[in-house]
Design a protein around this nucleic acid. Structure first.
Lengths: 128, 128
DNA sequence: ACGTTAATGATAATCCGTTATCAATAATAA
DNA sequence: TTATTATTGATAACGGATTATCATTAACGT
């Protein structure tokens, strides 16, 4: 039977409260505020569990370790701050992507990643 | 002094002929047609060299090992065939992405990845 | 409260892409 | 040709993310 543990709740709570996709490292740090002793294995285990329950989903990025976000509404994209390295969800989506395809190609899905500087980092020197 | 080797030429030739970004594995396989004995280390070494010469550039993908493409024109995006796992360059770009950003966010760059089925795979069962 | 056992946490092990090592090879200058 | 040395290729080593191990801990049904 599935048990309701402090660790599990700390992880889910962190994801919900953050309101943005979190990496394992971010998650570990945030969850420690609730359960100081929590370890990486537990984080990975619970991420897997939450995912197979359909509560969260993995967000893969080019070149970066993946993040995890609460399964919310529908289709959306992400913004990665090049200064603080935090990932944010953005709503909205450029349409008409099928038009970009060559003849004979079929579009099934797409992924858009915006990069720049977030609100909180505005003013700080950019990483490039 | 920089020497002109068969391996180096095989790699560059493979990239040019393919006309699309290639993975190290694809590159290794193609280059073997020219130099049967070529090894991975040589591929990696020459990719690094060609990159630092500005001839090729790395293409990072979410969840996938990166590919390498000849530095050609300008801004473009990519299409990944979910059936054959080959990556293609596509020209064109949806504009107006700044509009998707929340107040206070700054856009520096973006990356768009389309997925679906390529020309050659049309008809074959999709991977999902 | 108690006993059962799912879950935890420290850490060893694994995986996979990439880099380092180093003796052997081959591209160039002389 | 020959000598020099950049380059190669087999493979060991590395690094970062993730998973396995297993003794210990703590949920929770009774």
């Amino acid at each position: 039977m599935r048990r309701d543990t402090q660790q599990r709740n700390a992880i889910r709570k962190a994801l919900v409260n953050a309101g943005r996709p979190l990496s394992v490292d971010e998650l570990l740090e945030l969850a420690r505020n609730e359960v100081a002793s929590i370890g990486v294995a537990t984080v990975y285990r619970n991420l897997r569990a939450l995912q197979s329950e359909g509560q969260i989903q993995q967000v893969d990025l080019p070149g970066q370790p993946s993040r995890w976000e609460v399964v919310s509404g529908g289709h959306h994209h992400h913004f990665l701050c090049r200064t603080c390295d935090r990932l944010f969800e953005i709503q909205g989506c450029p349409g008409g992507l099928t038009r970009l395809l060559p003849e004979g190609y079929t579009l099934a899905e797409h992924e858009l990643l915006l990069r720049g500087q977030c609100d909180a980092c505005a003013g700080k020197p950019d990483s490039r």
